[in-house]
Amino acid sequence: MLRFLATRVGLLIPTFIGVSLVAFGFIRLLPGDPILIFAGEHGITPERYHQVAMQYGFDRPIWTQYFHYLGNLLHGDFGQSIVTRRPVLREFITLFPATLELSVCAIVFAVIIGVPAGVLAAVKRGSVVDQGLMGTALVGYSMPVFWWALLLVIFFSGILHWTPVSGRMDLLYFFKPVTGFMLIDSLLSGQKGAFTSAVSHLILPTIVLGTIPLAVIARQTRSAMLEVLGEDYVRTARAKGLSPFRVVGIHALRNALIPVITTIGLQVGMMMAGAILTETIFSWPGIGKWMVDSVFRRDYPVVQGGLILIAGIIMIVNLVVDLLYGLVNPRIRHR
């Protein structure tokens, strides 16, 4: 187990270097000069341009810039935004809780509904229930995210007035962020109604972001369950006189979850990278929106730093998934 962990952590180093190289290189391949974009329509004098370029090191050869950047990274210095002049790392830390809060809610939503739906479809294989569930899953998977989001907003916010249209909190409430997670901060603030407001703001973005993972998880659970339900040990469980609920929910599901966990892990990784469409539609101040804005501004340090941080988080999520995998699957744990 320890050796497994050590190997996995060791593998992170070359991955990290690769990611930094790609992050550094790709944004520079894009046409568009950050200084010119920042200067705007007024333009900039050649002298001033040169001065700014020197300040950011853009005048030096690209590989020198890279090694300089890598050296800074090792000291934990991700540089600062060209636009806001604030350290990239601090901006990330400020924005990431919003993304994390939304991602966690969305994945919990997707798992809580997707896994039982998949199990039900597998148990009722070929029935109307199965076809209905899998048809719905296919629709959920194929629907454009922005369109689905707009439909929900029109219906629940526009017509029914049940949920707010955007943001994380009503303007009525104000409190200093402690953890950055609205659900926790609103409780800590002790203001009446703040928590309810945080929850109601989360509902629609959670559904929108969770829909595709839900569909993927439901379909994956169904096919894994179908495979497992035909196994000899499920017959043994029935032969023991166990209730159908125990046979399916304990003996079959535990085995079926092994491939599903991999899927869930991949989905979580993708969400952590920031749900660009969802965050944009609901004006959710997370890192997805932040990254897109930075790309448009050619804010090199933010794009590089953001990419590396996101990649790091995805790597950690994958590591956690692998460890969980061992926990669920004893055949891996005891190797």
Partner: peptide, 18 residues
């Protein structure tokens, strides 16, 4: 299970691996 029990042909596959 209690009054009538059964064992099968493939013992390894008949036990739940998890």
């Amino acid at each position: 299970g209690r009054e009538i029990a059964m064992i099968f042909q493939e013992p390894i596959a008949s036990l739940n691996p998890c």
